[in-house]
Design a protein around this nucleic acid. Structure first.
Length: 676
RNA sequence: GCUGAUGUAGCUCAGUGGUAGAGCACUCCCUUGGUAAGGGAGAGGUCAUGGGUUCAAGCCCCAUCAUCAGCUCCA
């Protein structure tokens, strides 16, 4: 005689059903149409008080794909999973994001099904859902070709058309291992051995003739995955370790309907249209020249102008906030890099030494040693501290050949770098000021959201130098600063630099993407290595503490992110050309020249199109260049000293007096306005 | 660095072994116009680089460089 369990539905009603009842049974009991529409179910044991965040996070992890579910947390189950305890039950339809994730995991199984039907020699790794689709890592001697991918996709359509139910099979571990061993499925064997214990019953899912080691859940049947595409193939290391065998990773994406799939590819096109490498060419901002080498940026006049504007702002702001601008050499003697520890710890990222006269020199990968030499050049009193040295310093780092990416990952870049030498007592206020500064940078450049991470040490990890009390003090001050400023943050133990803890600020762009740029780091290692001192109130020498901070991070990377954030449509103060002039015909050229002169005299950047093209073509050209304002100049305007204003993304606003426009334009620039 | 793909005019791309193509951009001519492409003519290429196969290579083979999608690593 089976026990009764309680099922609570979202409306609060409770049903008593026999243990072993499935979510499908419940749905079907409500209405067969509902049962047909439901994809998966979300359950939470009724006894649970609150969802544990860590357990929820674990749900997404690789570990969770195979090992048992976190017992007390809410979880997603398939419709045919028998329920054996009192739970709240939510029946999820296709519009729930959790359903889509499950469907994509099912799509990975469908792809594996198709793959093994076509290429039975293939060995399977793992095939999870991702944020935008799914992939399956597989091993096969022969690389898959584009044609193979198309064939796989076509066969997937067959698997979907067969509408094979996904069925969970619980099997003794030994038997599963024996089966996989006989098939030489070395990766599946590894996963079973890693994620299950001897004596466990392990979970497999079968659809048709295909069975996979998998915890689930899945959609009810292959027919539920209506729209999918095999998108690409790439290499991936077995277990993410580059010393291991490389596998073939086949990517795909899946949706419940063709409309969503289309929308997904449309969105990819939009992202591509924002790509800073594409816009960099279209707007003539920068280039990378093969003959000069990979990862080295050429700033063209228009990009250079934006950079100059960014840097001017940054320098002015540094000075306003009590920094002193310094400049340090690009190459320095090897000896210096030995003292700083770079020879020892950073050599693989540095360019090899070059010999000059009797000595060896190395290109700088960081600015800190240079700033330290300035500090060290004269004795310092506690009255001199803090010393804040800032530099827009060009550094060069060797990056492996496959890693470069436009402006975002390069071999030569400019850090807006500063080093603050201060007493331990000054740390908190200095860090607080750095965070204020960082916030101001993000706000000024139009980013509204950011995330903060506090990276701390792991006392068990030997790579961290310095005593426990030093670490605790430092982490304590950082924590206090963040708490006092009411900034939410995530603590990441073990992610600190080896010499001290750090605060990283990741900004969120218009598309919701995260970018790591600003960082504020602690350091008591370099002051010790260089024997830095100041004379304290007690007349005795003390060692200062150093704060490293970069706010743009790298000017190149920040610029790349800006291009994507604005989709190339820079706000007025940054736009390389702020006003485009369109004289309607040649007889308006003189008026155009006088307007240009007056706008330029007021400090605006103006370009006049005096070609013999039609007005519409001129407007189009300025429009494609994303110029904020286009002024149309014809008889009416010339007669009344006015301009007809066309605003980027808004269109024709009619004529106004030139002085009125000038006033508006100057205000937009002065206020760093994001709007026009 | 690894796996796969790609490299043809300033840009976007076509060209499967037999004398290098298109559109846009550029130059010149015509056109002088009211809010996103007026018309015509011309000029422009060591087909990434270096080897090889072939009577003949942009095309086939090898190597190198660069780019792209990932992996790994990072500001």
């Amino acid at each position: 005689m089976s026990n009764l369990i309680k099922i609570q539905l979202p409306d609060g009603s409770i049903r008593e059903v026999p243990a072993g009842t499935t979510p499908f049974d419940i749905a079907n009991g409500i209405s067969p149409r509902l049962a047909a529409a439901v994809v998966v179910a979300r359950i939470r044991p009724l006894t649970t008080v609150a969802v544990n965040e860590n357990e929820a996070a674990l749900e997404q992890s690789e570990e969770a794909m195979y090992s048992g579910p976190a017992s007390s947390a809410e979880r997603i189950v398939g419709l045919s999973t028998p329920l054996h305890e009192d739970v709240t039950l939510e029946l999820l339809k296709e519009n729930d994001p959790a359903s889509l994730r499950v469907a994509r995991h099912s799509a990975a199984h469908i792809m594996a099904t198709a793959l093994l039907e076509l290429f039975p020699e293939t060995k399977l790794g793992h095939g999870p859902a991702t944020d935008s689709g799914f992939f399956y890592d597989v091993y096969r001697e022969v690389p898959f070709t584009e044609a193979d991918l198309a064939a796989i996709e076509a066969r997937m359509a067959d698997v979907v058309a067969r509408d094979e139910p996904f069925v969970q099979i619980l099997e003794p571990r030994d038997q599963a291992l024996a089966d996989y061993k006989s098939d030489a499925e070395f990766m599946k064997i590894h996963f079973i051995e890693r994620f299950t214990k001897p004596g466990d019953e392990i979970s497999l899912y079968r659809n048709g003739n295909f069975t996979d080691f998998c915890r689930g859940p899945h959609v009810p049947s292959t027919g539920r995955v209506k729209a999918f595409k095999v998108t690409s193939i790439a290499g991936a290391y077995w277990l993410g370790d580059e010393n291991n065998q490389q596998l073939q990773r086949i990517y795909g994406t899946a949706f419940f309907n063709a409309k969503d799939l289309d929308a997904h590819f449309k969105q990819l096109e939009e992202i591509k249209a924002r790509d800073h490498r594409v816009l960099g060419k279209q707007l003539d901002l920068f280039s990378i020249q093969e003959v000069a080498g990979a990862g080295l940026i050429f700033w063209h006049p228009k990009g250079g102008l934006i950079r100059k504007t960014m840097e001017d702002w940054m320098r002015d702001e540094c000075i306003r906030r009590g920094y002193q601008m310094v400049f340090t050499p690009h190459i320095m003697r090897r000896e210096l890099w030995k003292i700083s520890g770079h020879e020892e710890n950073y050599a693989e990222n540095m360019y090899p030494p070059m010999e000059l006269d009797d000595a060896e020199y190395r290109l700088k990968p960081m600015n800190c040693p240079g700033h330290i030499l300035i500090y060290k050049n004269s004795p310092k009193s506690y009255r001199d501290l803090p010393q804040r040295y800032a530099e827009l310093g060009n550094v060069y780092r060797y990056e492996r050949s496959g890693t470069m990416h436009g402006l975002l990952r390069v071999r030569g870049f400019t850090q807006d770098d500063a080093h603050i030498f201060c007493t331990p007592e000054q740390i908190e206020s200095e860090v607080e000021a750095c965070i204020d500064f960082a916030e101001s940078v993000l706000k000024t450049f139009g980013f509204e959201k950011f995330l903060v991470e506090l990276s701390t040490w792991d006392p068990k990890d030997k790579k961290f130098i310095g005593s426990a009390d030093k670490w605790e003090n430092a982490v304590g001050s950082l924590t206090r600063v963040l708490d006092r400023k009411n900034i939410p943050y995530k603590t990441i133990p073990g992610e600190a630099a080896f010499y001290g803890p750090k605060i990283d600020i990741k900004l969120v762009d218009v598309l919701g993407r995260l970018w790591q740029l600003s960082t504020v780091q602690f350091d008591w290692n370099l002051p010790a290595r260089f024997d830095l001192e100041y004379i304290g109130e007690d007349g005795a020498p003390h060692q200062p503490v150093m704060v490293h901070r970069a706010l743009f991070g790298s000017v190149e990377r920040f610029f790349g992110v800006l291009i994507e954030h604005y989709a190339g449509a820079f706000p007025m103060w940054l736009a390389p050309v702020q006003v485009g002039l369109v004289p309607i015909s040649e007889k308006h050229h003189d008026y155009a020249k006088s307007v240009q002169q007056r706008l330029e005299a007021a400090g605006l950047r103006v370009e006049a199109d005096l070609s013999n093209q039609k007005m519409n073509a001129k407007i189009r050209d300025f429009g494609l260049q994303k110029v904020p304002f286009i002024l149309i100049l014809g008889d009416k305007e010339a007669a009344s000293d006015s301009v007809s204003v066309r605003v980027r993304a808004k269109g024709d606003e009619g004529s106004v007096h030139l002085d009125a426009f000038l006033d508006r334009a100057k205000k937009l620039v002065a206020n760093h306005s994001m709007e026009l």
